[in-house]
Structure formats: structure tokens, C-alpha cells
């Protein structure tokens, strides 16, 4: 117990929490993307995948609650760290010269916030059907929830797609700093692997961006109908 307390109270411990939860969210983003990419295989695979997930409520809800907890921890630690950091530097320099900080690193808070807003919108859009309640009522020929149709119609709205694409861009930005930072925070980034880890971060961020954006782009371009 005292170990957890030390972990939670120390600055390094908070960074571990950020890193580990970030890693969890990163894994989710990849799995989620792979699931969604099934849209390119036609309606059947993706609808049956959705049906499969729904047929295992224990698994689904564990994953949902887990994800929520992870996201909450990630956000809480972030807020706490931001507060500590603001307090640590109460006065700014009159001329602020940016030294060594990449764009992604400097904007990590902004990108994080916008991603959070996006996630809420995204959930309202496709999970709760709050944007268009009929999305949840679509059924395919087997009586399963027609996720395929929901996605196609959802992304046919250029504004929704644009927001989606912009958010994916920010997510990508968030990850280029976030992934390599995770390795650094966990002390897994040794001199020999620095370049490799940074490359891994950029490549994975790029893949996630391309993979996720492929869907709205394909829908808007009429490739997926």
C-alpha cells in the first residue's frame, strides 16, 4: 500500500501513471482502428464483429469501465502535473525563447484537450446515437445492428468527417511526443534505442492517422457506400 502511495505522491510516480495509462489508451486506439478497418471488407465482417462484442457483455463492460478508468487516471494525472508545473514556474520570462521543444511537445496539453472533446463527441455520435438517434436503430439483413451503414452515413456528413480527420491529426501529434515520452518516463529509453523509439513513435502515430482517416476519406470519396 505504501508503495502505491509513494508512487502516487511522487512526481516520477505520476509520470509512470501517465505513461502506463497512455500506453493502455494507445493499445485501445490500435485495436479500435483494426476493428474499424474491417469496413473495407464490406458490411458483413464489421457487423458480425460488432455483434460478437455485444454478445459478450461482461467482456465489453469490463473493457469499457477499464478504459474509462484508464482515461480518467490519464486525465487526472495530467491535470495534477500541470498544476504542479504551473506552481513551479510562477513567473515567466519576458522574452520566451523556445529551446529544443518540438511542436508536438509544446502542444501536448492542447492536443489532449481537443482529443478529449472529440472522444466525447465520437461517443455521442456512434455509441449513444445522441447526434442522430436513428443510427442505433439501423439493422442489417440478419437483424444485427448495421454498424456499416451507421459509419457510412455518419461520415457522409463532411463536417463530422472534417472534425474526425482534424482530431486524428491531433491524436497523431499527441502520440509522436506521447509514445516516445512513455518510454522515457518508464526508463525504457536507453541511449542505444533512442532513435529507434522515436521512429517507432512517429511511425505508429502515422499509421494510426492514415488508418483512421482512410475511413471518412473513403466514405466521402464514395469508395465505401
Amino acid at each position: 500500500m505504501s508503495k502505491l502511495k509513494t508512487l502516487y505522491q511522487s512526481s516520477l510516480g505520476k509520470k509512470y501513471i501517465m505513461a502506463l495509462t497512455g500506453l493502455g489508451l494507445f493499445a485501445f486506439v490500435i485495436i479500435h482502428m483494426l476493428g474499424n478497418l474491417q469496413i473495407f471488407l464490406g458490411p458483413d465482417p464489421i457487423n458480425s464483429y460488432a455483434e460478437f462484442l455485444k454478445s459478450k457483455p461482461a467482456l465489453l463492460w469490463t473493457a469499457r469501465i477499464g478504459l474509462l478508468a484508464i482515461a480518467a487516471l490519464h486525465i487526472t494525472s495530467a491535470i495534477q502535473l500541470i498544476m504542479i508545473n504551473r506552481r513551479a514556474r510562477p513567473v515567466d520570462y519576458s522574452t520566451d525563447k523556445i529551446v529544443a521543444a518540438s511542436f508536438a511537445a509544446r502542444t501536448i496539453i492542447v492536443s489532449g484537450l481537443i482529443i478529449l472533446m472529440f472522444v466525447i463527441y465520437h461517443l455521442l455520435h456512434f455509441t449513444f446515437g445522441a447526434v442522430d438517434p436513428k443510427f442505433l436503430r439501423y439493422e442489417d439483413y440478419l437483424g444485427r445492428h448495421d454498424v456499416y451503414r451507421m459509419m457510412v452515413e455518419g461520415f457522409s456528413n463532411p463536417f463530422a468527417s472534417a472534425f474526425y480527420i482534424v482530431s486524428m491529426g491531433l491524436l497523431c501529434l499527441h502520440l509522436t511526443h506521447g509514445v516516445s515520452s512513455t518510454f522515457q518516463s518508464l526508463g525504457l529509453k536507453s541511449r542505444a534505442y533512442v532513435a529507434a523509439i522515436d521512429r517507432l513513435a512517429s511511425i505508429s502515430a502515422g499509421v494510426i492517422f492514415l488508418g483512421n482517416c482512410a475511413i471518412p476519406v473513403a466514405v466521402l470519396a464514395g469508395l465505401v457506400k
Partner: peptide, 22 residues
């Protein structure tokens, strides 16, 4: 040392690298 560092009111590392640069 980390406990002492935290107690002094220093901020956290956000892995940016300005420190190394200067």
C-alpha cells in the same frame, strides 16, 4: 533524492529536452 526534489517545489519532466539544450 526524488522525495527531496519534489519537496522543494520543482516541476515535473515533460520530456521536452530544453534542459539538455541549454
Amino acid at each position: 533524492m526524488v522525495r527531496a526534489m519534489d519537496a522543494e517545489g520543482f516541476g515535473n519532466c515533460t520530456n521536452i529536452g530544453s534542459c539538455e539544450a541549454v
